[in-house]
Design a binder for these strands. Structure first.
Lengths: 162, 162
DNA sequence: TCCTTGTCTTGACTCAGTCAAGACAAGGGG
DNA sequence: CCCCTTGTCTTGACTGAGTCAAGACAAGGA
């Protein structure tokens, strides 16, 4: 496993170091971790690891295409190892939990802007905001009656999403 | 015009004050302004305005549904007066310029996550990343050959967008 | 006009992230 | 196998965006 990471690092032109392997190990077991929890987690494997080292490692991983950085509004940046498929994210408004979503391939008319205003677009980033299952029951009586804990397509199609 | 804003403020339960009218005036002539340029701009009308006052005004406007806050990754928050239609944004990777995009209404299958992972989704936020017209010509020879300054649908459908 | 209450000013503070200088270690050349 | 180069990590100071709190002030109803 770590051999695989060493491989990935080398083929991205990066040296294999303990800080990098520690960060990769944390990201593998905890996708969508923020820099701070990566520091904490990676210290299990490398106790002297400094926050700045983690920022440096993460920048190198992102630049090398091994990790991806996501920045949900109002929260520190999160990092994940799943790259290259441009999947999207569900973010919980209450607790900040993040889940991956695959986008329907080949049928994404909404991702083609109706008017590009002269821009050359190379990426469409989608964030779905809502409440995760746990938060629906903790503070959710207000907006999440029991029958509609699962979203129905027409709620989005006809609703505020446009 | 300002009378209209006074009206909007009052119907949102907010008092009509000079700082608020100044901020609204800046937002009206410059959509997608960040807090700092709002401070600068609003000082034309109210020279003693403090940055903290602007943060307070913006928070009140957003809470009252008069303004909307958007936070493109890696940039300070931007504010706009266009609310209630959940439109999306084109952001220039090079200069940060932002343009509005309407989303095709009623035909947005990509905005329905294939798997909601138990989340109740109430909003889908879409950001299109690319190069604006000006930046295509300034630093654009690398990725923006003259014939493809306008996006073609298949580039997105079959490409990295998923 | 007065009074209440929401708003603004001032200033200290937090948090995420960056920058720079020097110590250190990965890994290719001898 | 060891040394040397060069990329990486450590330490510590710093920036920029935004928040918090206390008191001064002003909007607008009685």
């Amino acid at each position: 496993m770590e051999t695989t990471w060493a491989h990935e690092l080398r083929s991205a032109g990066l040296r294999v170091t303990r800080p990098r392997l520690s960060v990769l190990s944390v990201l593998a077991e905890r996708p969508h971790a923020d820099a701070d929890s990566i520091v904490t987690g990676a210290r299990d494997l490398h106790p002297s690891l400094s926050p700045q080292a983690v920022y440096g490692v993460l920048k190198a991983l992102v630049a090398g295409g091994i990790a991806r950085r996501i920045e949900p509004a109002g929260a520190p940046a999160l990092f994940e190892l799943r790259v290259g498929d441009n999947h999207h994210h569900l973010v919980c408004r209450s607790c900040g939990a993040v889940a991956d979503v695959d986008c329907a391939v080949g049928a994404a008319p909404c991702l083609v802007p109706s008017d590009t205003a002269g821009y050359v677009v190379d990426e469409a980033e989608v964030v779905f905001w809502g409440l995760c299952r746990d938060c629906q029951f903790q503070d959710g009586q207000l907006e999440a009656p029991a029958e509609s804990v699962q979203i129905h397509e027409h709620e989005i199609r006809g609703g505020a999403i446009a």
